[in-house]
Simulated scan of single mutants.
Amino acid sequence: MARKVRNIDALLRQWDYQPGQPIVRRATGSDQRDLLQIRVDMGVLQMEVTDRPDGHRPEGFPTYYEYLVAASFEEGPDFELDEERCSEIDREFYQFYHRRIAWLTLKEFGNAVADAEHSLRLMDFSSANAPDAQWALLHEQYRPFVMFHRTQAAALSELESTEPRTAVEILDEGLAALEHVFEEHDAADRFDDDLFVSKLREMRTSVMEHYEIGPTLAEQLANAIAAEQYELAAQLRDQLGESDQN
Rank of each mutant, 00 (worst) to 15 (best):
R3N: 14
N7A: 05
D9F: 03
Q14D: 13
Q18M: 05
P19G: 04
G20N: 07
R26T: 03
S30R: 06
D34M: 01
Q37W: 01
R39E: 00
R39F: 00
V40Y: 01
V40A: 07
V44Q: 09
V44K: 08
D51M: 05
D54Q: 08
D54A: 08
P62H: 13
Y67W: 15
Y67K: 12
Y67R: 11
V69K: 15
S72G: 10
F73D: 15
E75Q: 14
D78E: 09
D78I: 03
L81V: 12
R85C: 07
R85N: 05
E92W: 08
F93M: 11
F93R: 01
F96G: 07
H98T: 11
H98G: 12
W103S: 03
A112S: 11
D115G: 06
A116P: 06
S126D: 04
D132G: 13
L137H: 14
L138A: 15
Q141V: 14
F148E: 06
H149G: 14
H149Y: 11
A154E: 12
L159H: 13
E169V: 09
G174Q: 13
G174Y: 13
L175P: 15
L175F: 10
V181E: 02
H185C: 00
A187R: 11
A187M: 09
D189I: 02
D189C: 02
D194Y: 05
F196S: 05
S198E: 08
S198K: 10
M203L: 15
M203C: 11
E212W: 05
A224V: 05
A224M: 06
R237D: 08
D238F: 03
G241D: 02
N246K: 04
N246D: 03
N246A: 04
